[in-house]
Design a protein around this nucleic acid. Structure first.
Lengths: 298, 298
DNA sequence: CTGATCTGTGAGAAAATCTCACGCAATGGC
DNA sequence: GCCATTGCGTGAGATTTTCTCACAGATCAG
């Protein structure tokens, strides 16, 4: 069995034979003409016979080259078809994005129409994953979530935006809660907290220079919800002062349904798009790019 | 247009799909299993989907892998066919060896039957090239010749044996030519020389410690022939003392038709097989290997 | 269990490939 | 005709890909 020549050399041969010029082939292959010229030389050395003759400015196949060309053309065309078919099959499958319910409801859903209009080829399917968000799951292609580094090493994370947390409540709550200082507020308010983000209030309190003891006492009087989503509903219902990612309450703040007396506080966590290893990178990158644009637009 | 994945990765995929095992594929491709494993990984990363599942000790194609496999198989089979067809075409052409007439007549022709019997696939054609021996000529695949380095940079030279020159004459000539020493011989003999190797006698004389003047006088009395072939015929006819490559007179020495009073002298030249650039290397190498064996056998 | 036989992977070596910069040849507008 | 333009070939060195080696974890037969 005679061994095949370098496959890249064959590809160069195919391109040159097809386009009739080293320069044109080089452009098609996204390399310099020198690289293609070398590949041809390699191939001719392999077979021990010239495959092209110079003809004026261009090249023409020799008799031996003409003998080789049809098979090579056919083979590469077949390779291209096969790969394209698989790519098409993959693209035709919906791309499943998992996302915590709160983020889904308060940020993504309002933008979903636009997203589908901008990226129809994505065929996006969104699932609000209760609990398990691991993008390694079979039925999830990517996850949109807040998390602090370090991120799992085997997952490709596209960081989108640093998390900014903000203390919010309804105007009515603030009306009967002193909030000249963080200390004063924590001494009087009903704190709303979520089990999934136990660090949120301590981070905020530390940044505001409040004694841990003061915070501990305040949390004693507060209420804890299982999910961020319920926490936000509780805040909107005027049950107390909540701490939440700014992104999720931005609309309520603009509309005046919620008020934030203090500026938002950047945490070490970040909103990111997590891509499972060995999954369609392409569509994930498209989605990440769209998210970046959307977040930049406000 | 979606770009093709690495062609080598596709080849690895083909081999693994065909043989059902990384290890077997690695063996078929003459690489380690680690290399193949990595290629598969590359390919799966390219498509963003697993192409194989582990199944016990081996691997089986996933649904996506099964989608890809037939095209890839077909494409590589087509590549192999095309390349094999060209290789067959090339091998079916005779391989033309050029060679100086003297070497042809006195060394190669006596061995030609054996050569053709040992290497029938070579389809050897021998031409005695008068004058031009350049293996770059269209109609010459290789040249067998003596020459001193440096050899042309663009020609692949397989050195076979150092040239050894020897002073010879018929027994009758020696009978009436004093030859106790080189000096004595040069003082009395009729020197036979060839225009194509003007360095031969000077090299010999210098090695024997003879004064240049003595040699110059001897050459004055001698005769010069255009080709080595005529020189040897002249020596055999008893016209004088010739200097020639040992290889060409070895048979005459054994048979006693010629006698060499002094041992042969190694020169800086060598018998070599010269291969034109960009010509069938394979058959040239086979021929070179045969020549090496033949020369070693004496 | 235990040894044999797989595949997967990190680290570093080896090989293939590419780029850059230049030389030379052919062409075609002027 | 002449020269600017276009295209191919190549040496040197950088870069990227690919490979090997050595080891780890998994599976299976006996």
């Amino acid at each position: 069995m005679t061994s095949l020549p370098s496959l890249n050399a064959l590809r160069a041969f195919d391109a040159v034979a097809r386009l009739g010029s080293v320069t044109a082939a080089a452009e098609a292959l996204h390399v310099t003409h020198g690289a293609v010229s070398r590949q041809l030389r390699t191939l001719e050395a392999h077979f021990g016979t010239p495959l092209f003759d110079k003809s004026g400015r261009g090249l023409v196949l020799t008799a031996h080259g003409r003998l080789l060309q049809p098979s090579i053309r056919e083979a590469f065309s077949r390779l291209g078809e096969g790969c394209a078919a698989l790519a098409r099959e993959l693209e035709s499958q919906p791309f499943t994005l998992a996302c915590p319910g709160s983020l889904l409801a308060r940020w993504l859903i309002p933008r979903l129409d636009r997203l589908n209009a901008d990226l129809p080829a994505l065929r996006l399917r969104v699932v609000s994953s209760e609990g398990e968000l691991d993008p390694r799951r079979e039925d999830i292609d990517a996850t949109l979530r807040f998390a602090a580094p370090p991120w799992p090493a085997d997952i490709a994370v596209f960081p989108l935006q640093a998390e900014r947390i903000v203390a919010v409540a309804t105007p009515a709550v603030w009306a009967h809660t002193p909030h000249a200082t963080a200390d004063a507020m924590l001494g009087a308010a009903t704190l709303l907290d979520t089990a999934s983000r136990p660090q949120a209030w301590p981070q905020w309190a530390a940044a505001m220079g409040v004694e841990p003891a003061t915070l501990a006492a305040a949390r004693q009087r507060g209420r804890t919800f299982e999910h961020l989503y319920y926490l936000l509903e509780a805040a909107l219902a005027g049950l107390g002062v909540a701490i939440a990612p700014e992104l999720l309450v931005a609309n309520d703040l603009t509309q005046g349904r919620l008020v934030a007396p203090w500026p938002a506080l950047e945490t070490n966590a970040a909103l990111g798009l997590w891509l499972a290893p060995g999954r369609e990178r392409r569509r994930g990158e498209h989605l990440a790019a769209w998210l970046v644009r959307e977040l930049a637009a406000g």
